[in-house]
Design a protein around this nucleic acid. Structure first.
Lengths: 213, 213
DNA sequence: ACTTTTTTGTGGTATAATTAACAATGTATA
DNA sequence: TATACATTGTTAATTATACCACAAAAAAGT
């Protein structure tokens, strides 16, 4: 039982600290400080310490943090001590690209199933060893493979229906690449990844910068 | 010259309202309200009104908003009245998937150039009519085609170097798909899209939910 | 042993974002 | 025309997040 309410931005940063520590480890550095990490990430040292303080005391005053130890703690906090089986729902270009992204395996996420509605794609492999299945088999395959996370890359107009089916199949979290706001029960987590929205934030900033010069 | 400081979350939501209005338009609805939009998006009506109020008065009291008019206003605010030329930097799976994503063209973003370091890829087409070029040609091609936005999908260890080159080439904004915090001059906008971080937010939530039950 | 330097963890403060509340305004209708 | 209802724009209140400042602790130097 952990502290009840952790700010969302804090969670995102914890994942970023974890990545930062992994990089330090690779570089052979085994001790760091809140300042060093903060500078590398373009944030304030106090922010780093505050974020960590929600979960315990991981450093030594006057010294800093042991890279290995802090890294392990964050791994634990983020739920990354186990490997996660994920399914790709919608095996178009984007689904394919994500399934083949090396960062997934490297971070403990294993693509163990893929689905599509297109008859032509059924039976093909999305990554070596993982064939694309029909939606009708989704529920059973998700259960048989203990898949807890779905990566949703279907067309927008199908997203809510598919999400409903996923929830019924017992999925715990959805990484939503579709441009729809999904409604799901409150015990199901959804994370939206919407790069068109990000592009438009970009155009807003570029356009207003020009306006203001 | 517009109101100086608009909250970042507001900008993101403006883009979401714009999409919501586009959908309403397609459905043939020509009038809406802050409540209707808010409910569709799972937020509060007062949030919608507050966000819009930074830019003017677009509705009629007692009545609501004209879908067409508000949609046009948001298009204007977001800098979407013009079409934007974008370049794909790094033509791997992800770059390919993004270049071929129909949502880009639909929203006024045109992929007019692509780049890669891999000799085998140079000369191939990333989308019909757009061939992949060497990095060495980046600067001239960006200038000749008035490209203001770069979509960065190179491997992490190259991202800062490439970003520096992009800035030198006169790019205005970078959509950063790499897991690095880029440092750029303050007149350059960067938007990070990092779905591994989002995945880890998911595992955090799923794991802590289990802990707390 | 004492002083200086470093850096953490944290309580309090400042800033930012969201939400509520309501007067102002427009529509519908009896 | 008067009354009830709907919905905006905006100010005020609340909540959330980020930042600062400093005591506590550890190490290093004198």
């Amino acid at each position: 039982m952990r502290p009840l309410k952790i700010p969302k931005p804090t969670v995102k940063r914890l994942a970023i600290y974890y990545r930062c520590l992994t990089k330090l480890k690779e570089t052979g550095i085994d001790r760091t400080s809140s300042k060093e990490m903060a500078d590398a990430l373009g944030i304030k040292a106090s922010q780093v310490r505050k974020d960590l303080s929600y979960f315990g005391e991981f450093g030594k005053r006057g010294v800093g943090y042991d890279v290995d130890k802090l890294s392990y703690k964050l791994k634990e906090i983020l739920g990354l001590k186990k490997n996660w089986n994920v399914a790709i729902i919608g095996s178009g270009n984007l689904g394919y690209a994500i399934a083949n992204y090396s960062g997934l395996e490297k971070n403990g996420f294993k693509v163990v199933a893929a689905f599509d509605i297109d008859e032509k794609k059924i039976g093909r492999m999305i990554i070596p060893g993982v064939t694309i299945n029909k939606f009708s088999e989704m529920s059973s395959i998700i259960n048989e493979n203990s898949i807890e996370i779905a990566i949703l890359t279907v067309p927008a107009h199908e997203s809510q229906n598919v999400a409903d089916a996923l929830v019924k199949s017992g999925i715990k979290g959805i990484l939503n690449f579709t441009p729809s706001s999904l409604s799901v029960p409150e015990n199901i987590s959804v994370e939206d990844v919407d790069f068109v929205i990000s592009l438009k934030s970009l155009t807003f900033e570029i356009a207003s910068f020009n306006d203001n010069e």
